[in-house]
């Protein structure tokens, strides 16, 4: 009458919970592993902080290049000015590899275009019906994104940093840039309804890191510096794991990566999380400068 049911191997009919705890646990585990490794890793080859800054600028530029190219392609480059962001990101990134002095105008241009981009994006939001509404903040041009290009340019210019005070200035700037990025992530992860519990990581780890970094900028105490450094490493690892999450997130859209022409654009932006890694690297360099590393 009632067919035998193997309770133990029962495959539930219902949808899984809207919170994807399994992938979250996997990701947090990966973060623990990677972050732990980063924390334990001895600094065997001490990099010159200026080289770190250059690498950070290059990483940031790469992230911004990929992100702005994708997002503006999604927007169909309907305004020719939309080419400026990926173009400047490319130039700024290249600028970090060559003659630092010659690249300065490029970095300065990136800062200027980034700042102008903020205006363009604000206009894009305002011109839609509803104006400054949640819907437009979620789906119109992302309000804070062009700031990333400006950060790239500033990191490119920060190549000239040498002194402890430069370090403090840079630490303060990275802390603020991190907080700005956190605000953007919070907005977009709120849009995603925090459907994956790991989505809270980039709005918890980076603010804590930024606070520690800001502390170093204001009161460069040696006692808390190792803690700040550890936080930066965790944030750097989080950028890598976040990229993994976003790749997985795209695959969860209908058609997965096989339908990439939709899903790579409609799903979570794959290039975005790595900007946290870039910021962490620059923060690390700032601590080096504060600590008086040559």
């Amino acid at each position: 009458m009632v067919p035998a049911q193997e309770k133990s191997v029962r495959h539930p009919a219902r949808n899984t919970s809207s919170r994807d705890w399994r992938s979250a646990a996997l990701g947090i585990g990966a973060l623990a592993a990677l972050g732990g490794a980063a924390l334990l890793m001895r600094r065997r080859t001490r990099l010159d902080p200026r080289r770190k800054i250059r690498q950070s600028a290059a990483a940031m530029g790469g992230s911004i290049l990929a992100d702005s190219a994708m997002e503006h392609l999604r927007g169909g480059f309907h305004n020719p000015a939309m080419y400026a962001a990926p173009a400047l990101a490319t130039l700024s990134m290249l600028g970090t590899t060559g003659n630092a002095r010659a690249a300065r105008p490029v970095h300065a241009a990136a800062v200027a275009v980034g700042a102008a981009g903020l205006g363009f994006h604000a206009y894009n939001i305002l011109k839609r019906p509803g104006g400054v509404s949640w819907n437009n903040l979620f789906y119109a041009a992302p309000i804070g994104a062009p700031g990333g290009l400006a950060v790239t340019g500033i990191l490119g210019l920060a190549d000239a940093a040498r002194t402890r005070d430069h370090g403090r200035l840079l630490a303060g700037f990275i802390a603020l840039a991190t907080l700005a990025e956190v605000a953007e992530v919070a907005l977009l992860h709120f849009r995603g309804a925090w459907h994956n519990p790991a989505m809270v990581l980039p709005v918890t780890v980076p603010p804590a890191t930024a606070a520690l970094l800001l502390g170093q900028a204001l009161h460069p105490r040696t006692t808390t510096r190792p803690l700040a450094r550890s936080a930066l490493r965790l944030m750097g690892a989080m950028g890598v794991i976040g990229t993994g999450f976003h790749i997985y997130g795209v695959s969860r859209n209908m058609g997965g990566w096989g339908n990439w022409r939709q899903t790579a654009f409609a799903g979570p932006p794959v290039p975005a999380p790595s900007s946290f890694t870039a910021l962490a690297l620059a923060g690390d360099a700032a601590l080096d400068l504060i600590g008086g590393t040559p």
Partner: peptide, 17 residues
């Protein structure tokens, strides 16, 4: 339009497909 739907939902904007 399945599995692929549309990305560009704004007026006068169309996806390449």
């Amino acid at each position: 339009a399945s599995p692929r739907g549309y990305v560009r939902l704004q007026p006068n904007r169309a996806d390449s497909w």
